[in-house]
């Protein structure tokens, strides 16, 4: 799905240059679940933004399905996101003035689908996340967990190839966190999604097939259970060779 070669990202902060990513090499296979951990400010979310085409690297190549995202114009990147990439954010990022169903419909708006069909697809997506009865509620009328479910429905309604999640359980309590991760995991399995998740939570990270650690802009793979036939639900930790970035 993804192939990153020598990706760097630098920011100018006043007189200083911040090296957010330093030569990251990474291959993400189709249907893989990659979790990325690391301390704040070490480049996790920057990497996620680059994977999603929301930001461009300073140098390097980002291949997505054989297409180099660094060579695309803004409108082309937006079109790729519209068709193939779903996002989930820590703060849910729902439009406060739209209902749950209308928020899900916003993901379908760029695809020129007839309004009636759009409503049907949105309703179905909400049903899949268990919120069919909350379709008309505004985000302010939903709990944190419910809002994140709406966000998941919004991310998946267009049937993307990739789901990028930035701290999806960061603002949730423990019980709700487990619900959400469980939901994501089941959707990942059912749909054969490629999922990349940034998280601080080790218990969440351990559930992924692969765990990468971002430190000072460099990525190292700590865990890789892709070829392990046993399930990884309990978070068993197999040490593997790291591929330094």
């Amino acid at each position: 799905m993804y192939k990153l070669s020598g990706v760097t990202k630098n920011y100018q902060k006043g007189r200083d240059t911040v090296h957010a990513l330093r030569g990251v090499d990474l291959v993400i296979e189709d249907g893989e679940w990659l979790a990325i951990q690391g301390r704040t400010g070490h480049g996790k979310s920057t990497l996620l933004m680059i994977l999603g085409g929301l930001d461009q690297p300073t140098s390097g190549i980002v291949e997505f399905n054989g297409q180099d995202l660094t060579q695309l114009r803004e409108t082309q990147l937006t079109a790729v996101r519209a068709a193939s990439i779903g996002f989930i954010f820590q703060t849910f990022n729902l439009v406060p003035t739209l209902s749950a169903q209308e928020n899900v419909e916003t993901a379908l708006a760029p695809q020129r689908i007839a309004p009636a069909q759009r409503r049907t697809l949105a309703a179905r997506a909400l049903e899949e996340v268990g919120l069919a009865d909350r379709a008309r509620h505004l985000p302010s009328e939903l709990s944190g967990g419910q809002q994140q479910r709406v966000a998941i429905a919004r991310a998946l309604v267009k049937e993307p190839k990739v789901l990028l999640a930035d701290e999806p359980t960061g603002n949730l309590d423990e019980g709700t966190r487990d619900d959400i991760i469980g939901l994501l995991e089941s959707l990942w399995r059912e749909r054969g999604l490629t999922m990349v998740m940034v998280t601080h939570d080790s218990s969440v990270a351990r559930r992924a097939q692969r765990l990468g650690i971002m430190k000072n802009g460099r990525l190292s793979i700590k865990q890789d259970t892709r070829n392990d036939t046993s399930t990884n639900d309990t978070g068993s930790n197999k040490a593997m060779d790291a591929s330094a970035g």
Partner: peptide
């Protein structure tokens, strides 16, 4: 800003 950034992330073109 965050709202519009999210919409762009979802695939809304700037002109929209």
């Amino acid at each position: 800003v965050r709202e519009f950034g999210t919409l762009k992330a979802l695939g809304w073109q700037s002109r929209r």
